[in-house]
Structure formats: C-alpha cells, structure tokens
C-alpha cells in the first residue's frame, strides 16, 4: 500500500484520539496526566463538531461535550471531527482547536496572547460599566504588543503544546494498538456515551494494566464482545 493510501485509510485514528481525550477529560474531571508532564487541566470548550459520512452535529456551548446531544450523536455513529480545547498547565492557559483527521492545530492562542486578551476583556467591561470608552484603544495597544511578541517565544510555546499533545497521542496509541483498547477502553466508552455511571478509578486501574503486546490479544478480545 502506498504511503498516501496508508495515511488516508487511517485518518479515523485521529478522530478516535479526540473521542478518547473527550471521554478521559470528563471521567477525570478535566484533569489529564502524562508521565512527562504530570497533571494538567484539559477540557472541551466552545465548540464540538461530530460527523459520520453526510451526517454532522455541531455544538456550540461553554462545555459542548457535557450535554446529551453530543452523546446522542456518538450513539448515532458519529465521531468527533474537531473540538476546541483549553489546556491549563503551570498557571498558563492555552486554547486551540484540534482536528481529528489531520491532527492539525487551529486558532492556537498561546498563554501570553490569552492572558492579554482576558485582561483586555475584563478591562473593557469595567470601562463600559464606568461609562468610559477606552476599550478600543486598549485592544489596539494589545495588538501592537502581540506583534512584538518574539517569534522564538511563540514557536517555543507552540512546540511545547505540540509536545504535550504528542505525548497524549502516544499514550492513546499505546492503548489503541493494544488489547486493552477493546477490553477496557471501548466498553467504558459505551457506558459513558450511554450516560451510565462509569467507575473512573476502576477504568484508570484497568487501562494501566499489563500491556498485551500486538493485535492478537485485541482480536481475541473482539471475539468475546457482544
């Protein structure tokens, strides 16, 4: 199989990564963990788009993954196409839109940019309530500061975000390519999507269980699934 074919036929894995991140974020109350990065905040915000073939569901809400609409879309066979996510680590907040098929990053707002914007928004509201109209000037100043943000700092912070997401993807693949995916993750996903109670601690312990190397175990697990 040509590289281009291998890439195209395996894009679904990116959507499954998004699904797994979404589920883990909810099960672990918005706190994920990797060996390299320790614990950090990770939660869906603002937008979630799910799709399957011609059917699509777009949810815009503060916490778009929490409602039944999103889970119902999953139960109709849709998978997350993209979502906006907030990452909070070491007192720094980053937001971005993650796309499943390509794993491309969009609208990545780095910690420095986010901080300034939020300060500006708060400042604007205070000004507005006080009857002052300084908001626009503040935004202009903010945009000038943005442009002066050193290129290397921006690239370095972008690389840090990519490294964090890369580690999450690696952890996901360790499960996805292992028998634990079918034996542990998929049954938990089904419970979670159906709105049933999920024992997050039991899930955490089970997914940390001994890795079963190769797809043989996965196939065996598939065979026992109803």
């Amino acid at each position: 199989m040509q590289l281009a074919d291998r890439i195209e036929k395996r894009r679904f894995v990116g959507r499954e990564l998004l699904l797994w991140l979404w589920m883990e974020s909810e099960l672990f109350d918005g706190t994920l963990h990797t060996e390299e990065h320790g614990a950090f905040g990770f939660w869906l915000e603002k937008q979630l788009v799910l799709s399957a073939e011609s059917e699509s569901t777009s949810i815009k809400a503060a916490a778009p993954g929490l409602g039944r609409e999103a889970k119902e879309a999953l139960l109709r066979g849709q998978l997350p196409e993209r979502f906006a996510v907030r990452i909070s680590k070491d007192d720094e907040e980053t937001s971005l839109v993650l796309t499943g098929d390509t794993l491309a990053l969009r609208a990545l707002k780095l910690a420095t940019v986010l901080d300034k914007k939020e300060e500006a928004v708060i400042g604007d509201l205070v000004d507005e309530l006080a009857g002052r109209t300084r908001g626009r000037k503040k935004k202009k100043a903010e945009s000038e500061e943005d442009e002066e943000t050193p290129f290397y700092e921006r690239m370095s912070k972008a690389a840090e975000v990519e490294a964090l997401l890369g580690t999450l993807y690696r952890d996901f693949l360790r499960l996805r390519l292992d028998a634990r995916w079918d034996a542990v993750v998929v049954p938990t996903m089904r419970q979670w999507a159906a709105g049933e109670d999920v024992d997050a601690d039991a899930y955490r312990a089970a997914k940390r269980g001994k890795s079963t190397k190769g797809a043989k175990g996965a196939k065996a697990a598939k065979g026992t699934r109803k």
Binding site: T102, A104, L105, R106, A107, L108, K109, L110, V113, S143, D146, E147, T149, F151, R154, M155, A158, E162
Partner: peptide
C-alpha cells in the same frame, strides 16, 4: 501569520 495573533498551521 506566525508573528501575531492566534496560530493556525499545518505540520
């Protein structure tokens, strides 16, 4: 732009 605002890029 890589120099200002939020970043959207392909790798």
């Amino acid at each position: 732009s890589a120099l200002s605002g939020s970043l959207s890029y392909s790798r």
